[in-house]
Design a binder for these strands. Structure first.
Lengths: 337, 337
DNA sequence: TCCTGGCACTCCAAGGTCCTCAGTGCTAAT
DNA sequence: ATTAGCACTGAGGACCTTGGAGTGCCAGGA
């Protein structure tokens, strides 16, 4: 069905269209690519490619444009990830190296990725799963509230306010803090639920409601919200593109964190690059965009994802190279911390 | 120079132009506003207004459009802040009420403000100045690094990694932590520098470099970075507007946190609404936008600012009402925490 | 002195027509 | 199977026309 030359034609169509953003015709193709055949032959191949749905003609007398299916084939079989230049790698290293804390690592990573790809970059905060509890702090906020701060050994800080208690004695909070830290500091997050199970029993009965409230918020904060935080950069790059869907829809989709989280989460193959093209994205507003994402983490353990959102008409090899490289460097930096 | 009627004409021009986004002519004005004079008279007034630079004619046979100077006069003398409806106030209250921690208060505030105004909202994290230190935590990160976490009584958490030490004994860190907390917990941030001044002297000479490194990072984190954090929402609303400057420039400006911070910081009159119109903004990309900002805080003390960015052609009374109301509510919520 | 109706004038924007040209599909020849 | 040649198609740019909104100005009236 698709012989070698037809694939070469498809590849050429994709590459030229990505470069020029204009439908590409048979003559231009024959000129710019060493296909070794005449435009007429290319036309025949194009007809075949169009019948199979890989390319599409906006109107009769126009050139061809790749379809989502065409990009998909291109990504899967016709291209390879393009490694970064040495200069780019050095730039990454020095740019990420200067970060002082987790917030700054994430902030720099997302800006870096958006600049490398000239597109919108997304970085998810490292998940908590692998970390262990370094310290739990309970702070009476006056009145009837307590603030809880959990610090993990990966440098992540979770804070929550516990409310709806009766008035709480400061002494009780102190005891609870001591008890909690004895029970869970050093423990992996996964072990926390077991480790705190019998704590309420050790508390004086009248203080038990407080203890239970604190514990439930603790568990909730560790389990439920671990992947909520996401950072964006480079939305200005969208302005240069003209989308089939309106720019507004794309921006709206990007503002919904839950959408982004699901998007990144959908990566099929852990620890590999994932590319979702156009209509493969479930979200309406992102039907005319592609997303390239990757896991990052320390060692073999994936902590979270990073990704790039751009028009389906994007430089896939280059973008994939940048995403992969940045993911690796962030992993290294996190490991070094 | 500018009699009562001319001002009324200017007000009408601004209001109509904001509504329709089209240059407004003398007839339309006479029809829609009870000015009690004929279009010809209005025309004469318009000529005067144009000579004084308050309105401007895109081309000979078009209506008039307010200039930045015209908007300025409108805001200063011709309009009053429009209070929110009861329904809107209830919505604010219930929306902000559900927040569990500082991050969420800020996140909800910014989303709320962008929805109320249908524009881009900016919220700055509460400044640290007024808070006091609740607790300082030092966490050995293995190797030669220490993580420091400062928790304030307003629920803000600052974390920094201290690096470039020799290898550090865990015992030393423990001692330092105890000492630090004894010295500064409960102290206002402003008092911290004094309170830690003589700490190094109390440490064994061989540990002094570590102590000094920790203290310098502590002071730096409290002083220098206090106003860096900013959150945005509603950028999708920009897509609906057509700017004189390109949308890209606006988005780029909005991504530079330092620009936004300076922008909010420029508010003249503390604890009041500030409006900066068009070219009054120093930043190139924001020459065709206006910014409405306000302080928020607890009691009389301002903690930080919130604001809205939109086209100069914006509904000033409504936007100002929303910004003011949200600022007040956030203050209340923070006071309640 | 200020306001108003009338009028000639200006110029944008929308619609229509024409033309160019890139690119096609098809056919016949190699 | 490939290629040259050719007639055909349709988008988009250049050009023109026209309608209409809006103006500035003037002369007459309160």
């Amino acid at each position: 069905m698709l012989d070698e030359r037809k694939l070469a034609v498809l590849r050429a169509v994709v590459e030229d269209f990505v470069n020029t953003n204009e439908p590409v015709g048979s003559r231009a193709l024959a000129d710019r690519h060493p296909l070794g055949v005449s435009p007429a032959t290319i036309r025949n191949d194009m007809v075949a490619l169009e019948e199979d749905g890989y390319i599409h003609q906006p109107h009769t007398s126009a050139g061809r444009v790749p379809t989502d299916k065409g990009y998909r084939l291109f990504v899967d079989r016709l291209s390879s990830v393009k490694p970064l230049s040495a200069a780019e790698r050095r730039a990454i290293e020095s740019f990420l190296g200067g970060a002082v804390d987790l917030d700054e690592i994430v902030a720099r990573t997302v800006r870096l990725l958006s600049q490398l790809t000239r597109q919108v970059a997304i970085v998810q905060y490292p998940s908590l799963t692998r970390s262990s509890v370094q310290h739990v702090e309970l702070v009476p906020l006056g009145g009837q509230r307590i603030m809880m701060v959990v610090i993990t050994n990966t440098g992540r800080v979770e804070q929550r306010v516990i409310d709806g208690l009766g008035s709480v004695d400061e002494k009780v909070v102190d005891d609870l803090r001591t008890m909690l830290n004895r029970a869970i500091s050093g423990k992996h997050l996964g072990e926390v639920p077991d480790a705190v199970e019998d704590l309420p029993a050790q508390v004086a009965p009248e203080d038990r409601p407080v203890a239970i409230a604190v514990l439930s918020v603790l568990l909730e904060s560790l389990v439920e919200r671990r992947e909520e935080k996401i950072v964006l950069a480079g939305t200005a790059n969208l302005a240069a593109v003209d989308f089939a869907a309106s720019l507004r829809d794309v921006l709206e989709a990007l503002e919904e964190n839950m959408v982004l989280i699901r998007l990144l989460g959908e990566a099929k193959d852990p620890s590999m690059l994932t590319v979702r093209i156009g209509a493969e994205n479930f979200h309406e507003g992102l039907r005319s965009t592609s997303i390239v994402s990757a896991d990052y983490g320390v060692g073999n353990q994936s902590l979270a994802k990073i990704g790039v959102v751009g028009p389906t008409r994007m430089d896939y090899p280059g973008t994939m190279g940048a995403v992969r490289a940045v993911a690796r460097y962030v992993g290294q930096i996190l490991a070094g911390q």
